[in-house]
Design a protein around this nucleic acid. Structure first.
Lengths: 108, 108
DNA sequence: GTTAGTGGTCATGTTTTTCTGACTTATTGT
DNA sequence: ACAATAAGTCAGAAAAACATGACCACTAAC
């Protein structure tokens, strides 16, 4: 028998959405590289071995949509586009740091 | 041209493995409910609307395998099985707290 | 005009995850 | 004997994620 107080969890809370966003393929690498400076598409392709254009494109667009990255179009000779970590994006680095700290403890 | 210092990211570090483990479907809900007390399979099915047996079973087994939960078989009248949060599992709650704090800030 | 670089999109196919429904084992109750 | 509850497993289908290769727009050099 189901009592009212059994239901406590929404199917998709905000924390979970955030977690999904962070854990998508190549996302952690993107974050890690973004901390070091502006990202460029073709550089990412080279820096992340195994990644493909499509997936990177999707990942970048999702992160831009969620305001973790800012897309900056530089109208210059060969046309450059830079992806920059926003304040919101930077606020997630704490989560990564926590995760790294935890996994360091567990298997040294 | 690819320079040596371009390569900085391993494809699957420990932090990322942990992230994958946490972000699996129903995992956050399982954690949240586990904090409140021992989990029972049929209760989880009722408490997490939309979840199915198979996925819950897989999720629980994965968490047990990674030592986040402990499986406790109680040989009693109708046979009970309880899943309890381990110390290792409890150590991850900080990450969830971080995530919740961040998502609270962003869309109130 | 052809080639090269940057920054992609698109259609398609493959792989991985997740879901569904039927079935199982064991115990208790009627 | 039969139904019900607890805790699953299993095969197969459906859905989501990921990868591949072709293609497009723009600029600049040769």
């Amino acid at each position: 028998m189901t009592t009212n107080k059994d239901i406590k969890c929404q199917p998709e809370c905000d924390a979970e959405k955030l977690l999904k966003l962070l854990s998508g393929k190549w996302k952690p690498q993107i974050f890690r590289l973004a901390v070091e400076g502006p990202l460029r598409f073709s550089n990412l392709l080279r820096q992340i071995p195994g990644a493909n254009k499509q997936s990177l494109s999707v990942a970048l667009n999702e992160l831009v949509e969620e305001l973790m990255l800012e897309k900056l179009v530089i109208r210059q000779k060969p046309l450059h586009i830079e992806y920059l970590l926003t304040d919101k994006g930077r606020s997630l680095l704490g989560v990564f740091r926590e995760l790294e700290a935890l996994s360091d403890n567990k298997n040294p």
